[in-house]
Write a protein that binds this DNA or RNA. Structure first.
Length: 267
DNA sequence: AGGTATGTTAATTG
DNA sequence: GCAATTAACATACC
């Protein structure tokens, strides 16, 4: 489930397991995962080097190679796993083997992610047209950017060029916590609403990261664990409802998130 | 068996 | 010309 909190988990995993080890082999079993680089060139680039630190921008993970960054994107079904020994997890597509033992495995069930190289973060931001990272952005810039945006609030939250990192699942959680209807017109929000939106984004992202982006570990007031189960609202027990917003499925509590109401109503 | 799935992007439509 | 919608990508699951 690779949105910002998931990718942050991958980043921490990589930082804890894969730094300062000499890369001795890169195995690419699915060249389709590589963007604008061949398996051979990637191997030449990385062999003998080591990952020196990790960064994250939105849903992208960057591994510093000492000369530019390896960038990983996880699509809808990707993940990252340090493995030792020879048994690789299912859907392993690219392996970064380290001297001694161990390899960092990039998995992707549906092959929708990408791996590529950039010289710096700015190049990534430019290449993929990304807004500021949703966790790193400050309140002022966040509100400025949303104030110029039109359309539905859910679509805006998921717009990577506005703010990078939030996708379908976490936008639902943020809207539920606000609470606001996903089709709320961004234009209808005043400065106070935007400030509250910012605070809610920060709180939801930080909280879900703390709980390892794992729905089973999340606080009882969260929508996310009930999102797939035809569950009931954790606040009022009304059955949750699916609606289409901007082509994506949004899950809402039809009672707590009524259209036309903004967050100011409920305290 | 058809519809849907956590994402991005190119193509199409308005 | 731009923003909004749709299709495509590829695979698994209900």
């Amino acid at each position: 489930m690779p949105e910002l909190p998931d990718v942050e988990g991958f980043r921490r995993h990589a930082a804890a397991t894969s730094l300062h080890k000499q890369i001795v082999q890169v195995r690419v079993s699915e060249a389709r995962m590589l963007e604008e680089i061949s398996p051979q060139s990637l191997g030449r680039k990385l062999n003998g080097r080591q990952f020196e630190r990790t960064l994250r921008h939105g849903k992208y993970l960057l591994l510093d190679t000492g000369d530019g960054y390896l960038v990983l994107h996880f699509g809808m079904s990707g993940s990252l796993q340090m493995v030792s020994g020879s048994k690789l997890p299912q859907y392993t597509r690219v392996e970064f083997h380290f001297a001694g033992d161990g390899c960092l495995a990039y998995l992707s069930r549906r092959l929708l992610g990408h791996i590529f190289l950039v010289q710096d973060r700015g190049e990534l931001v430019e290449k993929k047209q990304l807004g500021p990272d949703a966790l790193a952005v400050d309140a002022e810039r966040f509100c400025e950017r949303f104030a110029e945006k039109k359309g539905s609030l859910k679509t805006a939250l998921m717009d990577q060029s506005l703010i990078a990192g939030i996708g379908n699942v976490y936008s639902d959680e943020i809207l539920f916590q606000l609470p606001a209807h996903p089709r709320t017109d961004v234009h209808s929000l005043d400065g106070k609403d935007l400030r509250k939106l910012y605070n809610t984004c920060q709180r939801v992202l930080k909280t879900t990261i703390r709980h390892h982006a794992n729905p089973d570990e999340m606080p009882s007031g969260y929508l996310l664990p009930r999102r797939n189960t035809n569950g009931h609202c954790p606040r009022c027990d009304t059955p949750l409802k699916k609606i289409k917003v901007g082509g994506r499925t949004a899950v809402i509590c039809p009672r707590c998130q009524r259209k036309g109401e903004t967050s100011k109503k409920s305290q």
